[in-house]
Computed example of a mutant assay.
Amino acid sequence: MVSALDIRADLLINRLKDTLKTIESIKPPEWALFSKTGSGRERPPEQEDWWYIRAASILRTLYIEGPLGTERLRAKYGNRKSRGVSPSRSVKGSGHVIRKILQQLEEAGLVEKDGRKGRKVSAKGRSLLDKIASEIAREMKIEVGKVKVP
């Protein structure tokens, strides 16, 4: 059986993004058009559907790396901040964006809290990711661990 670990991240995230757009509880807030995704960024994202891309990426990360909290996700989605003449430094991503996405994914039933460890993918979320992964594998004719060339 093919899982989300066997599929390339870009293919899985793009397909998952389209699926998340159909879920009613996952939608960008009004302020998302104007906000940056971290203090190291100079401008807001240019893609119109960046909220769904980030939500899909967070869901995939939770699937792979297990229960994670907001701080670990902030570190993952951080970047290097340009400080002019001084050397660049690493900064964390926006906690507000990550927290809102986690709350929306939890409301949709795709993510659940795991005590004090953070959040993890629920059974519904795991089955959604595996279903999308198997669809992509079928289209690309991928077997588990192997790539078939047509």
Rank of each mutant, 00 (worst) to 15 (best):
A55I: 07
E71F: 11
K100A: 03
T61N: 08
G69T: 09
R89P: 01
S25Q: 10
E71D: 15
W51D: 02
A75H: 06
R80L: 04
G93H: 03
L68A: 04
L110G: 05
L73K: 00
R138Y: 14
L16Q: 11
L5V: 11
A56K: 06
D49I: 00
W50K: 04
R126V: 07
I23C: 03
S134Q: 08
G115R: 04
P44D: 06
R83F: 12
R126Q: 10
K36Q: 12
G118N: 11
L102R: 08
K124V: 15
D114H: 07
P67A: 01
S94Q: 05
P29M: 04
A75E: 02
G145W: 14
P44R: 14
E24S: 07
I26F: 05
A108K: 15
R99D: 11
Q103I: 03
E135S: 11
S35R: 00
K131T: 12
L12R: 02
S3G: 13
A55N: 05
V147I: 10
E139K: 03
R74N: 09
S39V: 12
G93I: 05
D10G: 07
P29D: 07
D18C: 11
Y63L: 02
K146W: 15
S134H: 06
E112P: 01
P87Y: 13
V111L: 03
S35P: 03
A32D: 05
I101D: 00
S82L: 13
D130V: 10
P29H: 04
L128W: 08
R89M: 09
K81R: 09
I142E: 02
L20E: 05
G84Y: 12
K131I: 13
P28R: 08
S86D: 13
P67T: 01
S127N: 07
S3H: 14
A9S: 12
V91P: 00
G84P: 05
N14M: 14
A4G: 09
R99F: 06
Q104H: 09
T19W: 12
G109S: 09
R54Y: 08
P29C: 04
K81G: 01
T61R: 08
S122E: 01
P28S: 04
L129Y: 04
T22A: 05
K100N: 06
T70W: 04
R116D: 07
S57R: 10
W31A: 06
E42K: 12
H96P: 04
K81M: 06
L62N: 00
K27I: 15
A108H: 13
R43F: 15
R41N: 09
L59C: 07
V147A: 02
D130N: 14
K27V: 15
V85W: 15
V97I: 14
W51Y: 14
L105F: 08
E106W: 02
I58F: 02
K131D: 14
G93V: 05
G115Q: 06
N14P: 13
R80V: 02
L12H: 09
A133V: 07
G115C: 06
V91R: 01
L102V: 06
T70K: 04
I23M: 08
K148H: 12
L73P: 01
L129S: 03
L20D: 03
L5S: 12
R126K: 10
S127C: 06
R119L: 02
K146E: 11
